[in-house]
Design a protein around this nucleic acid. Structure first.
Lengths: 210, 210, 210, 210
DNA sequence: CATGAATGAGTATTCATTCAT
DNA sequence: GATGAATGAATACTCATTCAT
């Protein structure tokens, strides 16, 4: 009655299959409209299995965000500590953001929305902490942009300004390029250049540099 | 179980009360987590009354968006046709956006999210049209920014660039200032100035204009 | 602010308009699916007006049945007391039934169904009595057929048999011809003849009458 | 909130329990007045369970009809293909009808009524097909009577007549005997004999066969 | 008398979650 | 570990009925 394990990945897979399916469904449907039923159908697994790995729907969602986020944050860190001219570093940074969000646009859009109202009614206590964790998932990456700008100011290439606001502005522009599908994996470099250009020099007609 | 009319406004009110309550609940909870029960509790009305005025939850939501949007679009139009220096007009425009979104931030955030997946299961019939209407609610305002930039280019004060992308970028920055609560009704002017400044001249240290 | 009464019938009409509309809606939708809203739309009157004339939906339905029934029962009575050969009288009777049910097929179908389960849960007391009234609406007409057959037996043209069962059988055949739309106002006579023939002589091949 | 399985039948039961309860409730209340709440109370099960087995109320109802109908139709078929004198076959047929409808009178009464107006508001899409399925549940059995009469005509024992009308008439008489509770499982044979007798020879006093 | 705005009890249906196998 | 049958709280929506005007 026992089947040979179909392949070596299978055991590791189960959990992964669920996460992959969850990614698809959450991205397509948003948090509320996503159902466990749809996820298990896609993951080709049983309902109980989901609850073996993840305590509940919310935890499944968080795990998804969290795991996808980890690698991204690592990438950002590496860029930050790299030695390269400020302008290059900025462009690299923007490209990293673009690449990540192009892959995760829909899920992060959902995250951004859900950040505001998880838990609600009965959820009582743990929820506000939970929500905080979600917010941190964003904050920590935007923080990188803040540091970057700070560095720019220290190097004298960025003018004194409210770096937090500026970082958020830059971040939102990047997101918008992705959400509006102006950016895709093929034009990342070009879009990054455009963003950087306008971010640095603005849209105003340049005075002649003579 | 029936109240005597409490005062003369009551008759005009009922529908308004519901819309006001709906605004609060949708803003706080998002579309899906908002319940009619919560809305009627807040509106101090009966469930049937809601359905007398609005065919269903979705129509209630749309009406809300639609009514709030109307005045805003009118304002934008007036600014657009006004005769004033480009820079002034831009700032006025940004301020109008800020003012509107400061009041409607949460509801519009919900709108932005829901735009993507309304209509449930089969998405059946009128839904795709419905969604389109929602999208238009945004498009039409961003369109204003596009026109503005176009005007700037024609006047030679804005450099040649992809105005659609630029408009979306500007829009997203405005939204972000509001969503992050950097902007409130008291500092609208200052924030508008900052946004306009960076949008035009960028964050780069300016070459000396001598 | 007062309009001249539009015409003399108007006052009498209101109630009649409602009954007419109710007839249509109940016939088309059955008791449960019929709504007061649909009735008033058709009757071109206000919701309150309905409740001025009829205490509730159920009473409206009953009134409808009751009024339509009255004339019919009168007709049957006249046929019963008329002096004419048994066979003629039977045919006249069948034709009267056919004519009435052709006009009222749908409503009576609803009645037949509702007879079984009015009132239900909370309705407590008055309901069983109510239901009884409905049943009488039928019984009294079938009773006529019973009397008729009795008369036939007394005259020696109908064989001894359970007249109640026979009357119900005859009744059901009449109804079926109507419900199946085999009968309409134009072929009433022919259908009546066929029914009478089979009812009297059966479907068996007749032994030669020599 | 969760019961241990009480005995081995339970697993097979759940679905059956629901169908049995549904039979009772639909029979007693009709389609509209029957509520899922009442069904689950009687079936001693959870609301969700019903929806695990049946997509909706309508499907539950249809399944009920459909399953009960199957065996009946099979029985009729067997009688039809059996070799026996026409009169015997007819009586057997009538008895089969009586037996089935005595057990299912109320439910079929509901079916007959609902056949006319299923599908609610827009009557949308699959509903007309649905209704057709219900109608077929009847048609197919009456069709048997038509075939039977046809056979009788071919054998020269039934006189030429409109077999469709005659079959409907016979059918309605059978139903009426059941509905009026003239027939019960104990007098099926006697009632069948009476029906057959009158159907064949009518109620008229027989001319002397000399 | 006629009206219709307001009401809320009642109902079908969904879906996260549990737990015996 | 994996599974899925069973569950019921939650929710949108309907519609008969009332009552102030």
């Amino acid at each position: 009655m026992r089947h040979y394990k179909e392949d070596a990945d299978d055991i590791k897979s189960k959990r992964q299959q669920i996460l992959t399916a969850a990614y698809t469904v959450f991205s397509r449907k948003g948090y509320y409209r996503a159902t466990i039923d749809e996820i298990i159908a896609l993951a080709d697994t049983g309902k109980g299995t989901v609850y073996n790995y993840f305590t509940n729907k919310e935890k499944l969602f968080y795990t998804l965000i969290s795991e996808r986020s980890r690698a991204f944050k690592e990438t950002l860190n590496q860029i930050m500590v790299s030695k390269q001219p400020f302008m290059e570093k900025t462009k690299a940074m923007i490209m990293a953001f673009l690449r990540f969000y192009i892959d995760n646009a829909d899920l992060w859009r959902v995250l951004m929305h859900e950040i505001r109202g998880f838990g609600g009614k009965g959820s009582g206590n743990l929820t506000e902490l939970q929500r905080e964790k979600y917010r941190d998932e964003f904050r920590s990456t935007i923080e990188m942009l803040v540091s970057l700008l700070q560095e720019g100011i220290e190097q004298g290439v960025v003018k004194e300004c409210d770096v937090t606001k500026a970082a958020h502005g830059l971040f939102s522009v990047i997101m918008t390029m992705v959400f509006q599908k102006f950016a895709d994996q093929d034009n990342v470099e070009e879009i990054a250049a455009t963003i950087a250009d306008i971010f640095f020099y603005g849209v105003a007609v340049q005075p002649k540099h003579n």
